[in-house]
Every structure is written in C-alpha cells, then in structure tokens.
Design a protein around this nucleic acid. Sequence first.
DNA 1: TCCCTTATCTATACAATGTTCAGATTATGG
DNA 2: CCATAATCTGAACATTGTATAGATAAGGGA
Lengths: 201, 201
Amino acid sequence: MATRTAIEVPYHHGNLETALVDAAIVLVRKYGPDHLSLRAVSAEVGVSPSASYHHFGDKDALVSAIGNVLFDRLAIMQEKAIAKVNGKGASASIKKFEEMGNAYFAWAISEPNLYRLMLGGFCEINMDEHESKAWNLLRDGLDELAAHGVIDKSARNGGEVIVWSAVHGASSLAIEGLMPPSDFPLVLKSIKRSLGIKPKD
Amino acid sequence: MATRTAIEVPYHHGNLETALVDAAIVLVRKYGPDHLSLRAVSAEVGVSPSASYHHFGDKDALVSAIGNVLFDRLAIMQEKAIAKVNGKGASASIKKFEEMGNAYFAWAISEPNLYRLMLGGFCEINMDEHESKAWNLLRDGLDELAAHGVIDKSARNGGEVIVWSAVHGASSLAIEGLMPPSDFPLVLKSIKRSLGIKPKD
DNA sequence: TCCCTTATCTATACAATGTTCAGATTATGG
DNA sequence: CCATAATCTGAACATTGTATAGATAAGGGA
C-alpha cells in the first residue's frame, strides 16, 4: 500500500518508486512538465537511468504517477480548507463551498507547473481511484448546499461540471497570464450566481 | 505582413517561416505539443534543421508562433459562427453569444492537441496583438447584450473573465476526458444564468 | 547454513533530439 | 557587375528515451 508520505527512512535501496515520483515532482515544479528528464530524475535519486524502467514501463507512466499523486495533494489542501470552517448551518455550507474553490485556485496558481502537468494532457488521470477524492469533495459540497436548501434541484443537476469548469478555467487562465488572479472572486461570485446562491454583500 | 494563407506559390525557397509554422501545426495536431520535433518539421518542409534557426531563435519561438496563429484561427471560426446568425434584436444577440461559445468549444474538442498547445503553457501568448481578436469578439458580444438590456451593468462587469473561464475550463476538461462533451449545454446554460440571461426553455 | 530463484540495479549501446558554427549558396542593390 | 547581406547546408556535440545483457542483492526452502 505505502501511503507515500514525503520522508521515509530506508531510502537508498528500498522504495525507489516513491523516491522517483518525489524527485520528479521537484523537477517538474522547477522546469515544467515538458522538460522533465527521466535521466535527471534518476540522477537526483542517485540511481541508473535504466533502474526506473523496472518500476515504470515508460516515461509517460512516471508522469501519470506524478499526476495522480498531485490530485491527491490538491484534494488534501481542499480538505484542510474545509476543515477550518466551523458551524453546520446553511451559511457554513456556503462558506465551505467558497473555501473549497479558493483553496483549489490558490494551490493551482502557486504551483503552475504541477497544475499544468495535471490537466495539460501529460498524464492519464485515474478517474475512478484518485480523482474521485477531489470529485467526491465537490459532490458532497453541492449535496450539502442542496440539503440546506441553498440551491434547488435544477441547479444541483450537473453542478460538478459547471463548478469545476469555471474554477479550472480560471486557474488555467491565471496561470497562463490571461487573467489577473485578483479576478478570481468575480468568478467565484458568478458561480454562486449560476447556482442560485444569493450574495450577501 | 504576409497574412499567412495556407497555400502560397513560391514555396521551396521563399517563405520558409510560414511553411515551417504550417508544417509544425500538422505535426502538433498528430502527435501533441510535447513530442514536437524541430528536425521533423524541417524534414517535412524539405529543409535542413539548422535553417529554422534563421527564422526562429528557438524551438519555443516556433511554438509561440504556432500558438498565435491558432488563436487567429479560433477567432475566425467564432466570427463565422456569429455571421450565420441573422437578425438584430435582443434575442439575436443572445443567439450570437451562444453560437460564439459553441464554436469555441467545438473547435477546441475537435483539435485537442492544438488547443493544448495554445493554453497549456507551451507558448507565450501575445495578448496585445493576436489574442485581442478573440478577446474583442467576446467583449463586443457582451457589450451587445448589455446594449439590448439583456444583461445589466453589474453582470457586465468582468464578464469576459467569467465567460472565458467557464468555456475554456469546459473545453479543457472535455479534452482531458474529465467531462463528457455532451455536458457543454449545461455549462453554457449556467453561464447565461450567471449573467442574468433568462433561459427561454 | 547453503543454494537457487527472483527482484532490483548497472553498464553499455543506439537512434533521435535541440543547438551551434563554419562554410556554401543565393539574392539584392548600388 | 560585383560586393554585401540574407539564407541555407553539413558536420558536430551534448543530452534525451529506451532496449538489452549482465551484475548484485534479497529471500526462502532444504
């Protein structure tokens, strides 16, 4: 199982697979998803280039592994943000929803290269396993809004796709310098408006 | 100036620059923005690899040139779609707005690799020159909606970013297989709702 | 404890890539 | 018509992904 915590003790010989992923993430963050070199990753870990091929059949396989790890990290950030919100009423569910979006956007623009790898066509995303963590978070958030009567059923329908499109689009545009990050509140407000959540300001 | 039509007459020696861009687009479409090879492009045109360096200082420069050309093509598709709508009233302006979004999305998912190149961090987008064509299209569309009283000023504010975020996000997610293309109408409807355009169905 | 099987890693090699540089070719304009 | 600039070629270099064959280490049954 090996739940992939960042630091693990017996490193040099042992858990090469996770070591490669961790080193690759560092390099991708620095130099971007294109420009990732398998040889550089191997060198960073202190291992021969060929060694990687016993754990990943391909460079693309490594990249896909990275992608799925990153989706987990992003989901964890969102969970942390949600956990900070206390209260249980309708307004708390709205606050949680907002903080989920803010956490997503903040993480994306703080890690442009990692985010590009995740959603730029570099990796095959395992929709059923990892990605579901983030997806379920969104689904639960919308369900909670519906349960509190903040949004009605017609707005609930397809809400995941609507929200993710807007938040991902904003993240991507901001990363590419086509939208000032300071405009994200506008986007978030428009999402709430499209869901029928009334702004209180 | 050389407005870059696809076919031009004196080709072998002459307008290498546009020939390289055209050939590169063909290869990117086939194999993706990563996996683009300068040597392959040069071979396709029938020229030495070094020849490219007299027109583009870098591989990245070629890629950026491609990106800006593609933004033009996308804008042209949108213009065509708008031109098909006749009438001049409020409902025509809504129809034009919808068709603009549909054309964007349709082009994006029909050219996933080209779209990835445009907005996946591969190229520096010339915001002031080329990109403005698509941006102005969106701005004018929103202005027209506002002029006909379909949307009010508070919705007009920041409308470009809101709309582009949602449409680009949906395009990107669909391309990466994370959203069924058949869900785009849902996204479009949510955009209209967030702008305060009442659905007529 | 010894040995055999299996997992893991190294060494070497190969074709393809981006890029550079010196030289050849072509066009241009005075 | 020729000198000067623009354009293209050829060969070279370091680096890349990847395949193959062999070395090393680990593990488990006798």
